[in-house]
Design a protein around this nucleic acid. Structure first.
Lengths: 213, 213, 213, 213
DNA sequence: TATGAATGAGACTTCATTCAT
DNA sequence: AATGAATGAAGTCTCATTCAT
């Protein structure tokens, strides 16, 4: 009715809108998975009309993939590498496991949504699933590298097995916490997991024939 | 072109139809999760019209819950305790872990669909999720009982931690195989997991004060 | 499993089943009207499977028509004619109106469902509507006859008008009670209505030219 | 065969579409009642797809309630109080009754649909029913007020009775016309009704004790 | 940068009805 | 006299998406 006020505040702000949409989508997708996330629900959650969502994202697939990407970044930010200042290798590995556990408690969206997508096997794989598996492989590679540094005698096969086992433990403990809530002490369990894997690596390493002549 | 037999379609056979529906639903739900499972898709898979599905099941929730229940039973049937005839306790535990791994390879629907449901946190929880968590607790209780028998010195807290860790490892390894397919040797990894848990239990048990003088 | 017990009680009893179905259908149709009455709902209310309803009635139309017919009979049974022992014509007319009101309070299904059907104007008129209008015309004819007896001087047109007005008042007061419940004193209002109509008839009769020479 | 204009379908016009939907819904609901009004039928009548109806109305309940509201407004607009310029009170009341009758002939949807809804007693009452009863009470209050102005000596109870009777007569006569069609002269009958009610009020008023000495 | 309106497809579910037993 | 099972049509409503403004 009245002439538009100077509109100091409400002048269209693409960046902020995009964030609002991602926030809403992350919340809903973290609760309901890919199929359970409807554009209408995201619209209701973020307050922007559905058509605005399509201005920012090509389609639903694109939106979910962006959610995965952003939640991965948030998770990485929460993920503080332990200082290498001191401690035995075991202590440093354990400290790192605890640190990962804490970051998962603070930012569980990435792994929760990612696992949901990963467990699906639909014909047309959503792009979000691909993105998740890619970033996850990065993490996996870091663990493998760490194993090779700490246990140079391990052959490739053993490194592969240990890495798989290490990651699997992390996933499984995370799932446990998602199901049973706060009475699962994720930090303690991650630390226990780190110790056991470390020991296993030690033993495997000892058993193997030396590289030397 | 032969004249239609007097039996116009199929003679009504409720039990078989119910199985056909459950088979179709299990396959699709195992692939696509709760929301991704449409009644129309189940109908196409099992050959019965959608309205017939509603003769056998109250609604989609009821159908998925029944799928969970039945697949759990199939899984339990595949879940044979190793005979106690021979072997050290460690050997028996490892054998059992391998057996569980095999059953998961043969009948992965139960755990795949169940984990998808478990990871969801929607306000109105589907009945299938509740059912999954219930039957899962049965399995968990069995593991805890086994730990108490093999390591009578463990206190309750330790048993709880070990059980959680054991179950988490199973879940995580299963997820790994779902993601990476057959190049994950589930049996070997389950056996490795069993060994590590067994050792951890041994150590925990030794550290604790004896009950006797 | 066990050989069928002498089945003293549950031996199929067509008459009783028919009543149970009609009871259920009357209740639901009185609440929800023609379209709102589903065979499944009737089945749930009466405890017999839907297919049994089709054993007793050709189709839904037939069932509703039967409900109308039966509720009309129940209404007639609740309808106690006032003794003709004494009283002025006005007193007798008023007494009869009160009696009709009481019967409507005791058995409102007939008129409630009938009016619902009557107000609809769908292309394929349900048989129940026809039945209702037929039995209603019988009642209407009786009123007209009564008017002619009490006011022989009235011409046909006036009788028609008065009859229409009398019936309309009854319908309207009934609707009022259906809407507002027990704080509408149907008997008193019917009696008032009778008085007013009687007076109107008297006046109309006086105004008209005499038949006599 | 002219090349399609750049405006592909219709240029979006919310207000007009809403009217088209309400027009279609009013027509069908007035014929078939609440349950008999299918969204598909409304869609066919108004030319918009069913999903567009849900853009304008939350659900079917919302649509029917809006129909009731709008048709009440149309009816009220046709409902003109007679000028006080001339005529005895009785003449004015009769004129008004005729006017109401005419408005019901021109716009019967409001009352027909409303009465259908009012006669239902389903557990979950449709919002349309509530709306109808509310707006109907407005009309009722106007009649009561009129009675108090014209007959100041009437006590509250008598006004209530007369109002109920007046409204009931209107409803009943309307029903009569719905059933029997155009050979019911609604205007004449409404005028007759007004006269009889006026006389009844006069008599009731005379019988009552005067307020003054 | 954003959005009101529209839309075809498809979701879940109920409908009235039939038929072999 | 009765019923378990089946079925195509139709019900309400939501879906992802588009488009003119």
């Amino acid at each position: 009715m009245t002439k538009p006020q100077p509109t100091r505040k409400k002048r269209a702000n693409g960046v902020e809108s995009r964030q609002r949409i991602l926030d809403g989508a992350a919340e809903i997708a973290g609760e309901r998975g890919y199929e359970g996330t409807s554009i209408a629900a995201v619209s209701a959650k973020c307050g922007l009309p559905a058509s605005s969502i399509y201005w920012h994202f090509k389609d639903k697939d694109d939106l979910i993939a962006a959610v995965i990407e952003r939640s991965f970044e948030i998770w990485l930010a929460a993920f503080e590498l332990p200082g290498e200042e001191a401690g035995t290798p075991l202590e440093r590995v354990v400290a790192m496991a605890g640190s990962v556990a804490k970051s998962l408690i603070d930012a569980p969206d990435f792994l929760r949504l990612g696992l949901m997508l990963a467990l699906e096997h639909r014909p047309a794989e959503p792009r979000g699933r691909t993105v998740f598996l890619q970033v996850r492989d990065i993490a996996r590679a870091k663990i493998a590298e760490m194993a090779q540094v700490l246990f140079p005698d391990l052959d490739e096969q053993s490194v592969h097995t240990l890495t798989t086992y290490a990651v699997a433990g992390g996933d499984g403990l995370f799932v446990q916490r998602e199901i049973n809530g706060d009475d699962v002490d994720l930090v303690a369990l991650f630390e226990l997991h780190a110790e056991l894997v470390y020991e296993a690596a030690t033993r495997m390493s000892a058993v193997l024939p030396r590289h030397t002549s």
